[in-house]
Amino acid sequence: MYRANEQRYDKMVYNRLGVSGLKLSAIGLGLWNNFGSVDPFDTQRAIVHQAFDLGITYFDLANNYGPVPGSAEENFGRIMASDMKPYRDEMVIASKAGYVMWPGPYGNWGSRKSIIASANQSLKRTGLDYFDIFYSHRPDPATDPEETALALDQLVHDGKTLYVGISNYNGAQTKVMTDIFRDLKTPFIIHQPRYNMLNRQVEDDVLPILTAENKAAVSFSSLCQGLLTDKYLHGIPANSRANKGTIPFLEPAQVEQTLTTVKRLNEVAESRHQSLAQMALAWNLRQPAIASVLIGASRPEQVVANVQALDHLAFTATELERIEQILAQQTPINWKA
């Protein structure tokens, strides 16, 4: 029987989401990878236990996470039922809808039918009574934003989610949704963008909108799918995603372009007595609008190491200037390759 660490809240940092009443752990656990039907269940369980024992309270899912799609929610539901149910009210659990989930015209994008059906399916897979946050995973170019917003608003009124969020929306799209949610009085509190040292588009686009609107962000791909770790310091490992061809922007040719940058960034991290991954997480959290950064993990030890980023969050002006100089020389990555 799992019993949570009694000191789990002693060192974790909790940040408020804008002017809402909700706080998130500064580091959240993303279940995008390593929680599917193809992954060892006992390892998944150990990762969730380790995360919670370290004060991580934010757990981030989506309907199509796997593989197979839906299996991450099912596995997380098994862990909740067997171990974590007594701690449900100490957890912020999120899911999303918007990417392909089932065949036909309704298992994708952001129609009212797709959003509500997806939420119902996700609740069934996880065995939860409600989500704390439910997101529109991406904007739908063929659906009026108001329809997507109204669907999310309906989920709140139906008691299926406490708050709503959006993900992968650009600045203009974020402003449109913010205005609609304000008129509806929907508890829209969070945006989830891709953000890391090698992907900074949101700094000039999304983050200023969130700041102006008193909203917050939680960044995904915070370690750029492993590029901003020690994994690639000595080349491309044979067992890496770059060699598996599962992530478009991790094609070997693109990874090769980053190796010099990654090595130079690692030198800065070493001077700060941090790993590169720890520095990259701290660097994201330097942004006032970013309340939390998502990490992934394939084993519990990675969670422990990443949480240690919170031991050294501050940067000197010299360190930030040096990082900017290094990043300025990096060839832009084609994220849509």
Rank of each mutant, 00 (worst) to 15 (best):
P248M: 04
D230R: 15
D311R: 14
A242T: 08
L17G: 01
A26S: 14
Q330Y: 02
M101Y: 00
S221K: 13
R16T: 15
L294T: 03
R272F: 01
L54T: 03
G98E: 01
A97L: 02
D10Q: 11
V255R: 02
L24T: 01
G110S: 13
S271Y: 08
R322H: 15
A172M: 14
L162M: 12
I290L: 06
N34E: 12
S240F: 09
Y169S: 09
Y195A: 11
M101E: 08
T148I: 08
T57I: 08
L233Q: 14
V48T: 08
N239G: 07
M177N: 10
A51R: 08
I180Q: 05
I209D: 01
K231Y: 06
V92Y: 01
S275F: 05
L313D: 12
A217L: 09
R125V: 03
S118Y: 09
H191Q: 07
E324Q: 09
A151M: 06
D132V: 08
P248Y: 01
L250W: 01
D183Y: 11
N266E: 04
T126K: 09
N284L: 11
A238T: 04
T43I: 11
V202M: 06
G159C: 10
V164G: 03
L285N: 02
D42W: 11
A149D: 05
E319S: 10
L227I: 14
P208A: 12
T211Q: 12
I180C: 00
P248A: 07
V38P: 00
L184G: 01
Q325H: 11
F76G: 00
A151R: 02
R8A: 08
Q121A: 11
K124V: 05
A289Q: 06
L233D: 12
Y130Q: 15
Q44V: 00
K215Q: 04
R8Y: 07
E73H: 08
Q287Y: 15
M1E: 08
S111N: 09
L184V: 08
H312D: 09
G55D: 04
N15A: 05
D10S: 02
K263N: 14
V13I: 14
E146R: 15
N266R: 13
F181Y: 14
T143V: 15
I56G: 00
T316V: 13
I56E: 02
D53G: 11
Q257G: 10
